[in-house]
């Protein structure tokens, strides 16, 4: 699957990742000012922005990769890390810490990644700088009928040893006809 990721990566339009890094930084800084440094609100807003991105990003992802329906959540997570992160952010995170029932796991982002490079945050416990990723994963997975809780548990920006996102599968939603389409 990694090789497939490489092949797709060759064909996407690319830009300097530093522009992305600085743009994201600028957005987070602006949000902090807009919310008067209420970091809970900032996290929520980042999550919401991510969700909006996720529900549209999945379409591009499916058309680029031609990914088929996954047989298990494990496979889904493998596709996310080896294709999803690879194609959009050019990184390949590791998957760790599977729970025994196979419904929750951790994604560990490599350092530095395009979101947190050049970043240092003031010593605050509240802000999850990369929260937008959670929203993106949540939104994208919801569009393929997976209701998943996504949240950060560790962040190197806060002095932790790694940046870790926790995924927990709640339930598989039923395929439903969208409202208004009989």
């Amino acid at each position: 699957m990694s090789k497939k990721g490489d092949d797709i990566w060759k064909n996407v339009d690319k830009i300097n990742s530093e522009l992305f890094t600085l743009t994201y930084g600028s957005i987070v800084a602006q949000l902090c000012r807009d919310f008067n440094h209420n970091y809970h609100e900032v996290n929520n807003q980042l999550d919401q922005m991510g969700y909006n991105i996720g529900i549209r990003l999945i379409e591009e992802f499916l058309s680029r990769t031609g990914a088929q329906r996954c047989q298990s959540f494990k496979e889904t997570v493998e596709v996310i890390t080896k294709l999803g992160f690879r194609v959009f952010l050019n990184i390949q995170p590791a998957v760790e810490n599977w729970s025994s029932d196979g419904r929750s796991c951790s994604i560990v982002l490599p350092e530095p990644n395009p979101l947190n490079e050049f970043v240092e945050i003031p010593p605050t416990k509240d802000l999850w700088y990369c929260q937008i990723l959670c929203g993106i994963l949540r939104g994208a997975l919801q569009m393929i009928q997976l209701d998943v809780d996504v949240n950060f548990v560790k962040d190197t920006l806060k002095g932790d040893d790694k940046t870790e996102i926790r995924l927990k599968l709640n339930k598989i939603l039923k395929d439903e006809v969208p409202a208004g389409e009989d």
Binding site: V12, K14, N16, F20, I53, E60, L89, P114
Partner: peptide, 12 residues
């Protein structure tokens, strides 16, 4: 210099 998908920036 690292590169990244143009779509990611566009979405953001």
């Amino acid at each position: 210099i690292n590169e990244i998908n143009l779509s990611s920036l566009s979405f953001l």
